Computed example of a mutant assay.
Amino acid sequence: MLTNPALLRAIGHELRTAREALGWTRAQLVSQLDREVHSQTIATYELGIRQCTLGRFVAICDALGIPAPQVLTNAMRRAGVEPHLLACAVDLRLLVRDRSPDLEPLRRWAQHRLDAGVDEDGIVHLEPTLVAELAVFCGLAHVELFRRLEVFTSDSGL
């Protein structure tokens, strides 16, 4: 979940700018989407008032003909957000298979969570403060651990 208000507003700005560049109204954008979404919902996304799911974000970007990663990158730049200051989703199953010696404490933590059934789907969402604390256990800087965790997203395991 994105909880940074500046980033939500910046994403909304990027979506609105792309829609307006096409000369579309919100209703025209809605007509391009597969799922039923109301124009008012699009307005709340564009104003940064409401978060949208990743699936819906990608669908909106596809409808607008712009790559979702580009929208997010532009929005992060606009909001002045560094990637390591965001929460990250980590697939614990991928993490426990890694054999990097410096991540051993993190692997034990991940295995414990999997054994305890804390995360039913094996995916854990780590807030920046938790990543910083876990980095201490691994002897890494916060930013370095964040970058290392990016390879353990469920998408990277496909």
Score class of each variant (00 low, 15 high):
24 W>S: 03
57 F>H: 05
60 I>G: 01
27 A>Q: 11
63 A>L: 04
16 R>G: 01
24 W>R: 05
44 T>Y: 11
49 I>Q: 15
25 T>S: 15
29 L>S: 03
45 Y>W: 15
57 F>Q: 01
51 Q>H: 08
15 L>G: 03
62 D>Y: 10
33 L>G: 04
57 F>I: 02
25 T>D: 07
21 A>M: 11
5 P>T: 04
37 V>H: 07
18 A>S: 09
47 L>M: 13
33 L>Y: 11
12 G>F: 00
32 Q>G: 02
38 H>P: 00
25 T>I: 07
44 T>F: 07
52 C>L: 15
33 L>A: 10
52 C>A: 10
10 A>N: 02
50 R>D: 12
41 T>N: 06
52 C>N: 12
8 L>H: 01
24 W>Y: 12
27 A>S: 12
25 T>L: 07
7 L>H: 01
10 A>E: 00
6 A>G: 08
3 T>G: 07
54 L>H: 13
17 T>F: 10
50 R>K: 15
60 I>A: 01
54 L>D: 12
1 M>V: 13
4 N>H: 14
50 R>V: 10
11 I>Y: 01
23 G>P: 04
63 A>D: 03
21 A>I: 07
53 T>C: 09
42 I>K: 08
25 T>V: 08
36 E>M: 10
16 R>V: 03
44 T>M: 06
51 Q>I: 09
65 G>F: 11
52 C>P: 06
15 L>N: 04
17 T>C: 04
42 I>Y: 08
1 M>I: 11
64 L>P: 00
52 C>G: 09
40 Q>S: 14
26 R>I: 00
49 I>P: 01
21 A>C: 06
20 E>R: 14
49 I>F: 11
1 M>R: 14
10 A>F: 00
34 D>Y: 01
36 E>R: 14
9 R>D: 00
16 R>M: 11
61 C>V: 12
52 C>V: 15
42 I>T: 07
1 M>N: 10
30 V>Y: 03
66 I>M: 05
35 R>V: 09
35 R>H: 10
32 Q>V: 00
20 E>L: 12
3 T>Y: 08
58 V>P: 06
15 L>F: 08
3 T>P: 00
47 L>I: 04
8 L>I: 01
20 E>A: 11
29 L>H: 05
50 R>E: 13
57 F>L: 13
12 G>S: 04
37 V>F: 07
16 R>Y: 08
4 N>P: 02
30 V>D: 05
28 Q>K: 09
17 T>D: 11
64 L>I: 06
28 Q>E: 15
25 T>E: 09
27 A>F: 01
15 L>P: 02
14 E>M: 07
65 G>M: 06
18 A>R: 12
16 R>S: 13
